[in-house]
Write a protein that binds this DNA or RNA. Structure first.
Lengths: 195, 195
DNA sequence: CCAATTCTGTAACGATCCCTAAAATATCGT
DNA sequence: ACGATATTTTAGGGATCGTTACAGAATTGG
Protein backbone atom coordinates (compact mmCIF):
# COMPACT_ATOMS: atom_id res chain seq x y z
CA UNK A 1 0.00 0.00 0.00
CA UNK A 2 1.38 3.44 -0.90
CA UNK A 3 2.05 5.94 1.86
CA UNK A 4 -0.54 8.52 2.85
CA UNK A 5 -4.10 8.28 4.00
CA UNK A 6 -5.95 5.55 2.10
CA UNK A 7 -8.97 6.27 -0.04
CA UNK A 8 -12.30 5.87 1.71
CA UNK A 9 -14.07 4.95 -1.54
CA UNK A 10 -13.68 2.57 -4.45
CA UNK A 11 -12.96 4.64 -7.58
CA UNK A 12 -14.73 2.14 -9.80
CA UNK A 13 -17.87 2.17 -7.68
CA UNK A 14 -17.83 5.97 -7.66
CA UNK A 15 -17.27 5.99 -11.41
CA UNK A 16 -20.28 3.75 -11.90
CA UNK A 17 -22.44 6.11 -9.87
CA UNK A 18 -21.22 9.02 -11.99
CA UNK A 19 -21.91 7.03 -15.15
CA UNK A 20 -25.52 6.44 -14.20
CA UNK A 21 -26.03 10.15 -13.56
CA UNK A 22 -24.41 11.32 -16.81
CA UNK A 23 -26.30 8.61 -18.64
CA UNK A 24 -29.68 9.60 -17.25
CA UNK A 25 -29.40 13.39 -17.16
CA UNK A 26 -26.73 14.14 -19.72
CA UNK A 27 -23.50 16.03 -19.21
CA UNK A 28 -25.05 19.44 -18.75
CA UNK A 29 -27.95 18.13 -16.69
CA UNK A 30 -25.59 16.57 -14.15
CA UNK A 31 -24.22 18.98 -11.55
CA UNK A 32 -21.15 18.37 -9.46
CA UNK A 33 -23.35 18.55 -6.38
CA UNK A 34 -25.45 15.70 -7.74
CA UNK A 35 -22.30 13.79 -8.65
CA UNK A 36 -20.67 14.08 -5.24
CA UNK A 37 -23.95 13.14 -3.58
CA UNK A 38 -24.36 10.01 -5.71
CA UNK A 39 -20.70 9.07 -5.45
CA UNK A 40 -20.71 9.66 -1.69
CA UNK A 41 -17.53 11.73 -1.80
CA UNK A 42 -16.66 15.36 -1.29
CA UNK A 43 -15.73 17.71 -4.07
CA UNK A 44 -11.96 17.78 -3.42
CA UNK A 45 -11.88 13.99 -3.38
CA UNK A 46 -13.60 13.97 -6.75
CA UNK A 47 -11.11 16.41 -8.21
CA UNK A 48 -8.14 14.60 -6.74
CA UNK A 49 -9.27 11.27 -8.14
CA UNK A 50 -10.86 12.19 -11.46
CA UNK A 51 -9.96 15.79 -12.32
CA UNK A 52 -12.44 18.30 -13.69
CA UNK A 53 -15.97 17.52 -14.80
CA UNK A 54 -14.80 17.07 -18.38
CA UNK A 55 -12.08 14.66 -17.34
CA UNK A 56 -14.48 12.76 -15.13
CA UNK A 57 -16.85 12.38 -18.05
CA UNK A 58 -14.01 11.14 -20.20
CA UNK A 59 -13.22 8.44 -17.65
CA UNK A 60 -16.91 7.60 -17.41
CA UNK A 61 -17.07 7.29 -21.18
CA UNK A 62 -14.11 4.92 -21.28
CA UNK A 63 -15.71 2.80 -18.59
CA UNK A 64 -19.03 2.86 -20.40
CA UNK A 65 -17.43 1.56 -23.57
CA UNK A 66 -15.73 -1.23 -21.69
CA UNK A 67 -18.46 -2.22 -19.35
CA UNK A 68 -22.05 -1.92 -20.54
CA UNK A 69 -21.38 -0.99 -24.17
CA UNK A 70 -18.97 -3.82 -24.92
CA UNK A 71 -21.86 -5.61 -26.62
CA UNK A 72 -20.97 -3.79 -29.83
CA UNK A 73 -17.42 -5.07 -30.43
CA UNK A 74 -18.50 -8.42 -29.03
CA UNK A 75 -21.37 -8.70 -31.48
CA UNK A 76 -19.09 -7.97 -34.41
CA UNK A 77 -17.09 -11.09 -33.58
CA UNK A 78 -19.96 -13.33 -34.65
CA UNK A 79 -19.14 -15.54 -37.64
CA UNK A 80 -21.76 -14.10 -40.00
CA UNK A 81 -22.96 -10.58 -40.67
CA UNK A 82 -26.53 -11.51 -39.90
CA UNK A 83 -25.63 -12.99 -36.55
CA UNK A 84 -23.44 -10.01 -35.78
CA UNK A 85 -26.17 -7.49 -36.48
CA UNK A 86 -28.67 -9.61 -34.62
CA UNK A 87 -26.45 -9.79 -31.59
CA UNK A 88 -25.72 -6.09 -31.90
CA UNK A 89 -29.37 -5.10 -31.60
CA UNK A 90 -30.08 -7.77 -29.02
CA UNK A 91 -27.23 -6.41 -26.94
CA UNK A 92 -28.49 -2.86 -27.28
CA UNK A 93 -32.01 -3.80 -26.24
CA UNK A 94 -30.68 -5.92 -23.41
CA UNK A 95 -28.56 -3.07 -22.11
CA UNK A 96 -31.41 -0.57 -22.16
CA UNK A 97 -33.84 -3.06 -20.66
CA UNK A 98 -31.49 -3.62 -17.75
CA UNK A 99 -33.50 -2.35 -14.80
CA UNK A 100 -30.69 -0.37 -13.23
CA UNK A 101 -29.70 1.33 -16.46
CA UNK A 102 -31.13 4.64 -17.64
CA UNK A 103 -33.04 4.69 -20.92
CA UNK A 104 -31.02 4.98 -24.09
CA UNK A 105 -27.32 5.09 -24.89
CA UNK A 106 -24.80 7.35 -23.19
CA UNK A 107 -23.29 8.18 -26.58
CA UNK A 108 -26.59 9.81 -27.51
CA UNK A 109 -28.01 10.99 -24.19
CA UNK A 110 -24.69 12.33 -22.93
CA UNK A 111 -24.59 15.50 -24.99
CA UNK A 112 -26.45 15.54 -28.30
CA UNK A 113 -26.93 19.31 -28.26
CA UNK A 114 -25.08 21.40 -25.71
CA UNK A 115 -23.91 24.85 -24.81
CA UNK A 116 -20.40 26.22 -25.41
CA UNK A 117 -19.10 24.82 -22.11
CA UNK A 118 -19.90 21.27 -23.22
CA UNK A 119 -18.84 21.58 -26.84
CA UNK A 120 -15.78 19.39 -26.32
CA UNK A 121 -17.79 16.60 -24.70
CA UNK A 122 -20.39 16.86 -27.43
CA UNK A 123 -17.74 16.47 -30.11
CA UNK A 124 -16.12 13.57 -28.33
CA UNK A 125 -19.41 11.71 -28.22
CA UNK A 126 -20.02 12.41 -31.89
CA UNK A 127 -16.58 11.00 -32.67
CA UNK A 128 -17.29 7.91 -30.60
CA UNK A 129 -20.59 7.36 -32.38
CA UNK A 130 -18.81 7.62 -35.70
CA UNK A 131 -16.23 5.06 -34.59
CA UNK A 132 -19.02 2.66 -33.70
CA UNK A 133 -20.52 3.10 -37.14
CA UNK A 134 -17.16 2.57 -38.77
CA UNK A 135 -16.58 -0.63 -36.80
CA UNK A 136 -19.86 -2.03 -38.08
CA UNK A 137 -18.98 -0.92 -41.60
CA UNK A 138 -15.64 -2.75 -41.43
CA UNK A 139 -17.41 -5.89 -40.26
CA UNK A 140 -19.86 -5.72 -43.16
CA UNK A 141 -17.03 -5.12 -45.62
CA UNK A 142 -15.39 -8.25 -44.32
CA UNK A 143 -18.66 -10.11 -44.82
CA UNK A 144 -18.71 -9.08 -48.47
CA UNK A 145 -15.18 -10.29 -49.10
CA UNK A 146 -16.07 -13.55 -47.35
CA UNK A 147 -19.10 -14.03 -49.64
CA UNK A 148 -21.19 -13.81 -46.49
CA UNK A 149 -23.05 -10.84 -47.90
CA UNK A 150 -23.83 -10.56 -51.65
CA UNK A 151 -21.41 -8.47 -53.72
CA UNK A 152 -24.03 -5.83 -54.40
CA UNK A 153 -24.36 -5.11 -50.67
CA UNK A 154 -23.16 -1.65 -49.74
CA UNK A 155 -21.40 -1.90 -46.35
CA UNK A 156 -21.07 1.83 -45.83
CA UNK A 157 -24.69 2.66 -46.52
CA UNK A 158 -25.85 -0.43 -44.67
CA UNK A 159 -23.81 0.32 -41.56
CA UNK A 160 -24.95 3.91 -41.63
CA UNK A 161 -28.56 2.82 -41.88
CA UNK A 162 -28.36 0.24 -39.11
CA UNK A 163 -26.53 2.58 -36.75
CA UNK A 164 -29.09 5.28 -37.48
CA UNK A 165 -31.77 2.87 -36.28
CA UNK A 166 -29.67 2.13 -33.21
CA UNK A 167 -29.44 5.82 -32.29
CA UNK A 168 -33.10 6.20 -33.07
CA UNK A 169 -33.85 3.42 -30.61
CA UNK A 170 -31.98 5.43 -28.01
CA UNK A 171 -34.31 8.35 -28.65
CA UNK A 172 -37.30 6.03 -28.45
CA UNK A 173 -36.03 4.63 -25.16
CA UNK A 174 -35.67 8.15 -23.81
CA UNK A 175 -39.31 8.63 -24.68
CA UNK A 176 -40.32 5.62 -22.65
CA UNK A 177 -40.42 2.87 -25.28
CA UNK A 178 -40.91 -0.60 -23.79
CA UNK A 179 -38.59 -3.51 -24.31
CA UNK A 180 -41.15 -5.20 -26.57
CA UNK A 181 -41.31 -2.10 -28.77
CA UNK A 182 -37.53 -1.93 -28.99
CA UNK A 183 -37.40 -5.62 -29.84
CA UNK A 184 -39.85 -5.15 -32.67
CA UNK A 185 -37.83 -2.24 -34.03
CA UNK A 186 -34.70 -4.38 -33.91
CA UNK A 187 -36.47 -7.20 -35.74
CA UNK A 188 -37.47 -4.83 -38.53
CA UNK A 189 -33.95 -3.45 -38.76
CA UNK A 190 -32.66 -6.97 -39.35
CA UNK A 191 -34.89 -7.29 -42.40
CA UNK A 192 -32.93 -4.56 -44.15
CA UNK A 193 -29.99 -6.93 -44.46
CA UNK A 194 -29.69 -8.31 -48.02
CA UNK A 195 -29.98 -12.07 -48.44
CA UNK B 1 -52.56 50.71 -31.47
CA UNK B 2 -52.89 50.00 -27.75
CA UNK B 3 -51.81 52.68 -25.29
CA UNK B 4 -48.35 52.69 -23.77
CA UNK B 5 -44.90 52.61 -25.22
CA UNK B 6 -44.74 50.44 -28.35
CA UNK B 7 -42.49 47.39 -28.61
CA UNK B 8 -39.09 48.01 -30.09
CA UNK B 9 -38.83 44.47 -31.48
CA UNK B 10 -40.90 42.03 -33.52
CA UNK B 11 -41.94 39.14 -31.26
CA UNK B 12 -41.87 36.66 -34.15
CA UNK B 13 -38.38 37.66 -35.17
CA UNK B 14 -37.24 37.37 -31.58
CA UNK B 15 -38.96 34.01 -31.28
CA UNK B 16 -37.14 32.77 -34.36
CA UNK B 17 -33.81 33.79 -32.88
CA UNK B 18 -34.68 31.95 -29.67
CA UNK B 19 -35.74 28.91 -31.69
CA UNK B 20 -32.39 28.71 -33.46
CA UNK B 21 -30.56 28.82 -30.13
CA UNK B 22 -32.70 26.18 -28.43
CA UNK B 23 -32.47 24.08 -31.54
CA UNK B 24 -28.70 24.24 -31.75
CA UNK B 25 -27.72 24.10 -28.11
CA UNK B 26 -30.71 22.47 -26.44
CA UNK B 27 -32.81 23.81 -23.61
CA UNK B 28 -30.19 23.46 -20.92
CA UNK B 29 -27.36 24.59 -23.15
CA UNK B 30 -29.08 27.89 -23.91
CA UNK B 31 -28.70 30.56 -21.25
CA UNK B 32 -30.94 33.56 -20.88
CA UNK B 33 -27.92 35.75 -21.50
CA UNK B 34 -27.40 34.04 -24.86
CA UNK B 35 -31.10 34.36 -25.62
CA UNK B 36 -31.33 38.07 -24.90
CA UNK B 37 -28.17 38.67 -26.89
CA UNK B 38 -29.47 36.78 -29.94
CA UNK B 39 -32.95 38.29 -29.65
CA UNK B 40 -31.52 41.78 -29.18
CA UNK B 41 -33.71 42.53 -26.21
CA UNK B 42 -33.16 43.00 -22.50
CA UNK B 43 -34.19 40.51 -19.89
CA UNK B 44 -37.30 42.33 -18.62
CA UNK B 45 -38.56 42.67 -22.19
CA UNK B 46 -38.15 38.94 -22.65
CA UNK B 47 -40.04 38.14 -19.49
CA UNK B 48 -42.80 40.64 -20.27
CA UNK B 49 -43.29 39.25 -23.76
CA UNK B 50 -42.69 35.52 -23.32
CA UNK B 51 -42.65 34.69 -19.60
CA UNK B 52 -40.11 32.39 -18.01
CA UNK B 53 -37.58 30.26 -19.86
CA UNK B 54 -39.94 27.30 -19.81
CA UNK B 55 -42.78 29.36 -21.23
CA UNK B 56 -40.52 30.83 -23.87
CA UNK B 57 -39.50 27.35 -24.92
CA UNK B 58 -43.14 26.33 -25.10
CA UNK B 59 -43.85 29.22 -27.49
CA UNK B 60 -40.75 28.34 -29.49
CA UNK B 61 -41.94 24.75 -29.73
CA UNK B 62 -45.37 25.81 -31.00
CA UNK B 63 -43.72 28.00 -33.59
CA UNK B 64 -41.33 25.22 -34.57
CA UNK B 65 -44.21 22.84 -35.20
CA UNK B 66 -45.99 25.40 -37.34
CA UNK B 67 -43.10 26.83 -39.22
CA UNK B 68 -40.21 24.52 -40.08
CA UNK B 69 -41.72 21.23 -38.88
CA UNK B 70 -44.99 21.52 -40.74
CA UNK B 71 -43.55 19.14 -43.31
CA UNK B 72 -44.80 16.23 -41.23
CA UNK B 73 -48.56 16.91 -41.27
CA UNK B 74 -48.21 18.16 -44.83
CA UNK B 75 -46.54 14.96 -45.95
CA UNK B 76 -49.30 12.84 -44.45
CA UNK B 77 -51.79 14.52 -46.77
CA UNK B 78 -50.28 12.79 -49.79
CA UNK B 79 -52.70 10.41 -51.51
CA UNK B 80 -50.68 7.23 -50.97
CA UNK B 81 -48.73 5.91 -48.01
CA UNK B 82 -45.59 5.60 -50.08
CA UNK B 83 -45.76 9.16 -51.28
CA UNK B 84 -46.55 10.34 -47.76
CA UNK B 85 -43.53 8.60 -46.26
CA UNK B 86 -41.36 9.74 -49.13
CA UNK B 87 -42.41 13.34 -48.65
CA UNK B 88 -41.99 12.95 -44.90
CA UNK B 89 -38.35 11.98 -45.17
CA UNK B 90 -37.69 14.42 -47.99
CA UNK B 91 -39.11 17.18 -45.83
CA UNK B 92 -36.99 16.15 -42.88
CA UNK B 93 -33.81 16.10 -44.95
CA UNK B 94 -34.72 19.36 -46.59
CA UNK B 95 -35.29 21.03 -43.23
CA UNK B 96 -31.99 19.86 -41.82
CA UNK B 97 -30.13 20.72 -45.00
CA UNK B 98 -31.42 24.28 -44.84
CA UNK B 99 -28.26 26.32 -44.38
CA UNK B 100 -29.62 28.53 -41.61
CA UNK B 101 -31.02 25.66 -39.61
CA UNK B 102 -29.12 23.81 -36.91
CA UNK B 103 -28.48 20.11 -37.41
CA UNK B 104 -31.22 17.74 -36.41
CA UNK B 105 -34.73 18.15 -35.05
CA UNK B 106 -35.72 20.36 -32.14
CA UNK B 107 -37.90 17.57 -30.75
CA UNK B 108 -34.74 15.50 -30.29
CA UNK B 109 -32.03 18.09 -29.72
CA UNK B 110 -34.13 20.23 -27.40
CA UNK B 111 -33.89 18.05 -24.33
CA UNK B 112 -33.29 14.34 -24.81
CA UNK B 113 -31.68 13.89 -21.42
CA UNK B 114 -31.83 16.70 -18.91
CA UNK B 115 -31.49 17.63 -15.27
CA UNK B 116 -34.34 18.09 -12.82
CA UNK B 117 -34.87 21.73 -13.79
CA UNK B 118 -35.65 20.74 -17.38
CA UNK B 119 -37.68 17.63 -16.65
CA UNK B 120 -40.93 19.27 -17.74
CA UNK B 121 -39.51 20.40 -21.07
CA UNK B 122 -38.01 16.98 -21.62
CA UNK B 123 -41.37 15.31 -21.03
CA UNK B 124 -43.14 17.75 -23.29
CA UNK B 125 -40.77 16.97 -26.13
CA UNK B 126 -41.21 13.26 -25.58
CA UNK B 127 -44.97 13.73 -25.77
CA UNK B 128 -44.64 15.72 -28.97
CA UNK B 129 -42.46 13.02 -30.50
CA UNK B 130 -45.05 10.43 -29.59
CA UNK B 131 -47.80 12.50 -31.19
CA UNK B 132 -45.77 12.66 -34.39
CA UNK B 133 -45.40 8.90 -34.38
CA UNK B 134 -49.12 8.47 -33.74
CA UNK B 135 -49.99 10.79 -36.63
CA UNK B 136 -47.94 8.63 -38.98
CA UNK B 137 -49.52 5.50 -37.55
CA UNK B 138 -53.02 6.87 -38.19
CA UNK B 139 -52.05 7.69 -41.76
CA UNK B 140 -50.76 4.15 -42.34
CA UNK B 141 -53.90 2.69 -40.77
CA UNK B 142 -55.92 4.69 -43.25
CA UNK B 143 -53.75 3.33 -46.04
CA UNK B 144 -54.57 -0.23 -44.99
CA UNK B 145 -58.31 0.40 -44.98
CA UNK B 146 -57.96 2.03 -48.39
CA UNK B 147 -56.18 -1.04 -49.76
CA UNK B 148 -53.22 1.26 -50.32
CA UNK B 149 -51.09 -0.91 -48.07
CA UNK B 150 -51.52 -4.71 -47.99
CA UNK B 151 -53.69 -6.06 -45.16
CA UNK B 152 -50.75 -7.77 -43.51
CA UNK B 153 -49.00 -4.42 -43.04
CA UNK B 154 -48.68 -3.45 -39.40
CA UNK B 155 -49.22 0.34 -39.14
CA UNK B 156 -48.17 0.63 -35.51
CA UNK B 157 -44.91 -1.25 -35.91
CA UNK B 158 -44.26 0.38 -39.25
CA UNK B 159 -44.83 3.90 -37.96
CA UNK B 160 -42.68 3.19 -34.93
CA UNK B 161 -39.90 1.88 -37.15
CA UNK B 162 -39.99 4.78 -39.59
CA UNK B 163 -40.10 7.39 -36.84
CA UNK B 164 -37.21 5.65 -35.12
CA UNK B 165 -35.21 6.13 -38.29
CA UNK B 166 -36.29 9.77 -38.39
CA UNK B 167 -35.02 10.41 -34.85
CA UNK B 168 -31.90 8.47 -35.68
CA UNK B 169 -31.32 10.79 -38.61
CA UNK B 170 -31.50 13.68 -36.17
CA UNK B 171 -28.71 12.09 -34.17
CA UNK B 172 -26.73 11.52 -37.35
CA UNK B 173 -27.22 15.15 -38.34
CA UNK B 174 -25.98 16.25 -34.93
CA UNK B 175 -22.86 14.23 -35.66
CA UNK B 176 -22.27 16.07 -38.89
CA UNK B 177 -23.90 13.78 -41.44
CA UNK B 178 -24.06 15.32 -44.91
CA UNK B 179 -27.22 15.81 -46.89
CA UNK B 180 -26.24 13.01 -49.24
CA UNK B 181 -25.84 10.61 -46.33
CA UNK B 182 -29.21 11.59 -44.92
CA UNK B 183 -30.78 11.14 -48.33
CA UNK B 184 -29.38 7.64 -48.62
CA UNK B 185 -30.69 6.76 -45.17
CA UNK B 186 -34.11 8.06 -46.17
CA UNK B 187 -34.04 5.99 -49.36
CA UNK B 188 -33.30 2.83 -47.39
CA UNK B 189 -36.07 3.63 -44.92
CA UNK B 190 -38.53 3.77 -47.81
CA UNK B 191 -37.65 0.21 -48.77
CA UNK B 192 -39.08 -1.05 -45.50
CA UNK B 193 -42.57 -0.21 -46.76
CA UNK B 194 -44.45 -3.37 -47.88
CA UNK B 195 -45.51 -3.52 -51.51
C1' DC C 1 -50.24 69.65 -21.26
C1' DC C 2 -51.54 65.85 -18.33
C1' DA C 3 -52.66 61.33 -16.48
C1' DA C 4 -52.52 56.60 -17.68
C1' DT C 5 -50.22 52.91 -19.70
C1' DT C 6 -46.61 49.99 -21.50
C1' DC C 7 -42.15 49.21 -22.77
C1' DT C 8 -36.87 49.84 -22.07
C1' DG C 9 -32.58 50.06 -19.60
C1' DT C 10 -29.91 49.56 -15.41
C1' DA C 11 -29.04 47.14 -11.63
C1' DA C 12 -29.17 43.67 -8.65
C1' DC C 13 -31.29 39.65 -6.16
C1' DG C 14 -30.63 34.80 -4.18
C1' DA C 15 -29.31 30.39 -5.87
C1' DT C 16 -26.47 27.44 -8.07
C1' DC C 17 -22.58 26.63 -11.08
C1' DC C 18 -17.58 24.52 -11.16
C1' DC C 19 -13.60 24.62 -8.69
C1' DT C 20 -9.91 25.25 -4.92
C1' DA C 21 -7.35 26.81 -0.62
C1' DA C 22 -6.39 25.37 3.98
C1' DA C 23 -6.57 22.65 8.00
C1' DA C 24 -7.55 18.13 10.07
C1' DT C 25 -6.97 13.04 9.68
C1' DA C 26 -5.07 8.54 8.61
C1' DT C 27 -1.75 5.70 6.73
C1' DC C 28 3.27 4.84 5.33
C1' DG C 29 8.53 4.03 6.24
C1' DT C 30 12.08 4.67 9.71
C1' DA D 1 7.20 7.87 18.29
C1' DC D 2 8.05 10.82 14.24
C1' DG D 3 8.37 12.95 9.66
C1' DA D 4 6.45 12.25 5.05
C1' DT D 5 2.66 11.53 2.17
C1' DA D 6 -2.04 11.40 0.58
C1' DT D 7 -6.70 11.75 1.62
C1' DT D 8 -10.61 13.84 4.07
C1' DT D 9 -13.30 17.66 5.80
C1' DT D 10 -14.73 22.39 6.06
C1' DA D 11 -15.31 26.45 3.96
C1' DG D 12 -15.69 29.54 0.54
C1' DG D 13 -14.41 32.09 -4.11
C1' DG D 14 -15.59 33.89 -8.55
C1' DA D 15 -18.66 33.33 -12.14
C1' DT D 16 -22.95 32.49 -14.07
C1' DC D 17 -27.65 30.88 -13.51
C1' DG D 18 -32.81 32.45 -13.99
C1' DT D 19 -35.50 36.14 -12.36
C1' DT D 20 -37.24 40.65 -10.76
C1' DA D 21 -37.52 45.74 -8.73
C1' DC D 22 -37.29 50.17 -10.13
C1' DA D 23 -36.80 54.32 -12.56
C1' DG D 24 -36.70 56.52 -17.18
C1' DA D 25 -38.71 56.80 -21.90
C1' DA D 26 -42.34 56.60 -25.39
C1' DT D 27 -46.85 56.20 -26.75
C1' DT D 28 -52.20 56.63 -25.87
C1' DG D 29 -56.59 59.26 -24.85
C1' DG D 30 -58.41 63.42 -22.75
Amino acid sequence: MPPGRPRAFDPDVALDAAMLLFWRHGYEGTSLAALTAAMNINTPSLYAAFGTKDQLFQKVLERYLQNPASYLPNALKEPTARKAVQKLFDGAVHMVAHARHPDGCLLVQGALAAGPAAAAVRQQLADTRRRAQLALQRRLERAVTERDLPPHAHPQKLARFLITILWGMSVQAAGGASRRELDEIAAMALESLPN
